[in-house]
């Protein structure tokens, strides 16, 4: 079979060469070029840690969305008034021995896998699942805001250049010099509404997480806009907007996605911290930070499980996000092979 010389850059998909039609010798080899997404996905699938991370993230999201619906009680009601003790029950314990001090567990069961909180005896598992909703929402939405803002600013600075570039980059310098944690704390204390404020926290974290992305996007635009294909596009009269969105941006996408994964991780931890200090989400909305914050008083009487599990949830989520980010970086890298 004669090999038709195809464009060298196009990867040949070996499985996709179609059956001979009509039995005649067909000189056309079915060269199916893979889309960028397929290429990346093929490499990403081989990255074991990244797949584990992705699985964890999907599980987290699923649990956060549907979990609270199926749980036996919500965070608002007191599940078991009979076992009311000052201290919470340790993991898997169902009730304390009535007479012993310090308390020893009388019987074990699956009712409270993460134990219960001191005081109101809430189930920690329920709390963590409910917290996952808000924490994941904040982490990912604020990342979206930050990435969009950063891409716009970076694209303008890198593509237009000149005076505007200088001004924008000095603004980025200033913003990066400010201790952002301080500023976020100040802003969330001074500006936000004390009632339902999840979207305000999202906005605050979004507005303070675009600088890194904009620097990255600017540098990518600076190098890509000098490449031949952009020159060619300009030569045939393609408009600026189309060059930016159709020619340059797709080529800059991979580093942006990797940077986005770092932002998600940072913002989830950041939200937990400001909520922990009491300046974040309204304390009656469960987030991982709020759960940790509430657990403080009972840590001193020994209820370690109350702060331990929301913290582990944060670690697992951030680890998963980082794994996925690593996998994406390798998958996007044209030097690694699938």
């Amino acid at each position: 079979m004669a090999q038709v010389p195809g464009p060298a850059a196009l990867p040949v998909n070996p499985g996709a060469s179609g059956p001979d039609e009509g039995g005649a010798t067909d000189y056309e080899v079915n060269l199916k070029s893979l889309t960028q997404f397929e290429l990346v996905w093929r490499k990403f699938r081989r990255h074991r840690l990244a797949m584990v991370g992705l699985g964890l993230l999907i599980t987290m999201f699923a649990a956060a969305i549907v979990g609270p619906i199926f749980l036996p009680f919500t965070v608002d009601d007191i599940p078991d008034a009979a076992t009311k003790a000052y201290e919470g029950l340790p993991p898997f314990c169902t009730n304390y021995l009535a007479t012993s001090l310090p308390h020893t567990c009388a019987s074990y069961g699956l009712t409270h896998p993460f134990g219960t909180t001191g005081g109101l005896q809430w189930d920690v598992f329920t709390l963590v699942l409910n917290g996952a909703r808000t924490s994941l929402l904040i982490g990912f939405s604020s990342m979206a805001i930050g990435v969009v803002l950063g891409t716009i600013v970076g694209a303008i600075a890198g593509y237009i250049g000149g005076f505007l570039d200088n001004v924008l980059m000095r603004i980025v310098d200033v913003m990066l010099s400010l201790p952002l944690l301080f500023v976020i704390l100040v802003v969330s204390r001074f500006f936000k509404d004390q009632r339902d404020n999840v979207w305000q926290i999202i906005l605050i974290f979004g507005v303070f997480s675009w600088m890194g992305v904009s620097r990255l996007v600017r540098s990518l635009f600076l190098s890509i806009r000098e490449r031949e294909f952009v020159e060619a596009a300009r030569a045939v009269g393609v408009r600026d907007r189309r060059i930016i969105f159709r020619h340059i941006l797709p080529n800059a996408l991979s580093p942006i996605v990797v940077a986005a994964s770092l932002i998600v991780a940072g913002n989830i931890i950041g939200e937990a911290f400001i909520s922990f200090l009491g300046f974040g989400v309204n304390p009656y909305t469960p987030t991982w930070g709020n759960i940790l914050s509430n657990s403080l008083t009972y840590l001193l009487v020994g209820n370690w499980w109350w702060p331990a599990f929301p913290g582990l949830a944060i670690i697992v989520t951030v680890l998963a996000v980082n794994f996925v980010g690593d996998g994406l970086r390798d998958a996007f890298d044209p030097r690694t092979r699938a």
């Binding site: 991780a265 931890i269 937990a272 911290f273 922990f276 940790l292 657990s295 403080l296 840590l299 001193l300 020994g302 370690w304 702060p307 331990a308 913290g311 944060i314 670690i315 697992v316 951030v318 680890l319 980082n322």
Partner: peptide, 23 residues
């Protein structure tokens, strides 16, 4: 490194307080 990178500072502090201070 992976775990340390993912760990919130304040949570580690809390756990250390519990382990070495309270327990």
């Amino acid at each position: 490194a992976y775990v340390g990178f993912a760990m919130p500072t304040f949570w580690l502090g809390l756990m250390l307080i519990f382990l070495f201070g309270v327990n």
